[in-house]
Design a protein around this nucleic acid. Structure first.
Length: 264
DNA sequence: ATGGCCGTAACCTACGGA
């Protein structure tokens, strides 16, 4: 089973590229982030013709997540509060960033983690609080299944080798200590990076800034990936970053990451 | 150098992104 994640930076602008990519890659489950569209305007039709069941959780202009699945999902949970009933300090579901699908006893958690803007901003604190809430959500999910794949745009480069140039990273959004610790604390629930099972060295990135010819110079960051509980990590057989869509005209600033797991 | 580039909303500019 191939599970892909792709921050498309607007599904309406990128729909032809996503369609083209799905034509040439046999993807069972595609998790999209930053769809940037309300549900009634989501461009479903071409993808349904490819045989996908479409699950969407969007809002106007910002954020938005979606899951395409060749096999219908057994259950879908929209946002944190759909299953996490504890009262959060703030309503984290105002921003549409979490969509979970259950298939064959596996929970696929599609995430668009807040960017955080800069480390001295209110958005940075929101990001840290959001990650803390995500940890509670995953703790609950772990009581329901031992097979969880969390994937998406984490907006955090966990290690220095995930950044083209880690100099000054302590004060940089996506690489500060508090963000890394918040994510590390989540991973300590029992998750391992699928991509790192096969590729231990640095220099592999999933996002390149639109400015400064970053893609041509390969000055990127690896912030999109899959984190797997051990029963899934053990059966993962490959993970690759497909840079091809980033070479196309008018691309997303992110490129897709594919994880393959061998199902019994 | 607090920007560059891109998408959205909505209106010729602001915002959010990373």
């Amino acid at each position: 089973m191939k599970i892909a994640t792709w921050n498309v930076n607007s599904i309406r602008t990128r729909k032809d590229q996503v369609w083209q990519w799905l034509q040439t890659n046999e993807i069972d489950i595609l998790c999209l982030q930053e769809t940037k569209v309300i549900d009634k305007d989501f461009p479903r039709s071409g993808f349904e013709e490819l045989g996908y069941n479409i699950y969407i959780y969007g809002q106007k202009a910002y954020n938005g997540v979606a899951i395409f699945s060749k096999t219908p999902l057994d259950a879908v949970h929209f946002g944190f509060s759909d299953i996490l009933n504890t009262e959060p300090s703030q309503n984290f579901d105002e921003q549409k960033r979490v969509l979970t699908g259950i298939i064959n006893g596996i929970a696929i958690v599609n995430l668009y983690v807040p960017n955080g803007s800069s480390i001295d901003s209110d958005k940075y604190n929101y990001k840290l609080n959001w990650l803390n809430h995500l940890k509670d959500y995953l703790k609950l999910l772990l009581t329901q299944t031992e097979k969880i794949c969390i994937c998406g745009d984490f907006n955090i480069a966990l290690e220095d080798i995930d950044i083209h140039n880690p100099k000054g990273r302590e004060n940089h959004i996506m690489a500060s200590d508090a963000e890394r610790q918040a994510l590390q604390s989540i991973l300590e629930l029992g998750f391992k990076d699928g991509f790192r099972k096969f590729t231990p060295e640095g220099g592999h990135f999933s996002w390149w800034d639109y400015r400064q010819a970053s893609f041509r110079r390969n000055t990127g960051w690896r912030i999109d990936t899959h984190y797997l509980t051990l029963p899934l990590h053990e059966v993962a057989s490959s993970s690759i970053i497909d840079k091809t869509p980033r070479t196309w005209e008018q691309p997303s600033d992110h490129t897709p990451v594919i994880l393959t797991v061998e199902m019994p």
